[in-house]
Design a protein around this nucleic acid. Sequence first.
DNA 1: TGGCGTCAAGATAGT
DNA 2: ACTATCTTGACGCCA
Length: 304
Amino acid sequence: MKIGYPCVNESLDCSAASTFRLASYSAERVETTVAGNLACLQRILEYNVAHGLRFFRIGSGIVPFGSHPINTFPWQTRFAAEFRAIGDYIRAENMRVSLHPDQFVVLNSPNPDIVQRSIEELIYQGTMLDLMEMDSTAKLQIHVGGLYGDRDAAIARFIATYHTLPEAVRRRLVIENDDRLFSLHDCRRVHEAVGIPVLFDNFHHECLNHGEPMAEALRQAAATWHPTHDGVLMMDYSSQQPGERKGKHTSTLEETLFREFLTHLHGLDVDIMLEIKDKEASACRAIGVLRELQLVAAEAASLS
DNA sequence: TGGCGTCAAGATAGT
DNA sequence: ACTATCTTGACGCCA
């Protein structure tokens, strides 16, 4: 089981998502910014190794305007060595990485231009993983998309678009159950049609489900991952921020809830991304919780 | 230097 | 038809 957090490290004084306005675009600016972002990414990964965090979501903004037509800078060749070095480090340290393109990637949009731009974005993000020479267990996670008033048609459009994706994207693409529109059940329908793995989000599942208990939901999601091609189930973990609207992520890890969640795994191996506001602080505490449990288990074994 | 309006991109619910 | 929200930071103008 690997534990991780997304995109940003708040303990370090660098950013791997440094960018600039479209209006101030220049090739020179791209080059210096990507160099800085990759240097920071390496520092974040080193921090993670030092703290036992072996899962990390790389931010979408490593290459500013990475899928925008304005960006004709050959970053893929200029930074090939840097990407490969980062990939070597990730493999050497037995880490796992993912990316999560944001809300603008909508493969089931009725608007073909939006679909095309979405595919361009997925190609950009997949290319980064390819340059790092990551295998197909490094994933690109997206949501199914919009509903547009007709769930079946929306799912059918996702499936149709999926078939047109380049293999380089398809081998990494996974769908995540969301908290309002497409549930675990809906994602499993898509999986049954095209074989795409379902990344499980426990908090979204609490917000939107069909009565599946947590342990059963985990089992169902895990069954959509091919053990060698996809790796073990990736999941996002969070919990409700008390007193806030339903769906608001907690500001810090609630250790009691996390321990309770772990009881539903029943030995299932998963890699857990903590989608929690205070980032690595909570991830480190999650590591502490797991170590405690392991100590308890080890003690019980030695006594028996 | 600090404050703050704005930023490539979509979809949805509410008014 | 228009706005706020998701979600959040960071750019970059201005005082």
